[in-house]
Amino acid sequence: MLPYLGCIILFLIGIYAILTKRNLIKIAIGFCLLEYSVNLFFAFIGYKKDALAPIYANLSQARNFVDPIPQALVLTAIVIGLGTTALLLSVALRIYEKYKTFDIKEIKRLKE
């Protein structure tokens, strides 16, 4: 149960960062934390106690494998996360270039 609790704590920290921080980069970091917590959670799902790595060596051991699918999925999710984070950061940097600030409350030309 403990790892799941860790996930939830990480998740809450991420939400806290997104909701309260004013710096764009910090918001991005909070967003990364959220993503990690979800990925971690996904990875934990496949875990089984005392199980082997899912490599198809010989059939006699085939009974007690760790579920390999979540790992593959998490890898994909990480790639996607990489893409989003990169885009988020580069947009944040461009915003800094134009607005000369990282403060999210200053960046409000689009409203109403």
Binding site: L82, A86, L89, S90, L93, R94, Y96, E97
Partner: peptide
Amino acid sequence: IFLAIAATRFIM
């Protein structure tokens, strides 16, 4: 990606 972000740094 690294280059793109690094390039921004130089413009700054």
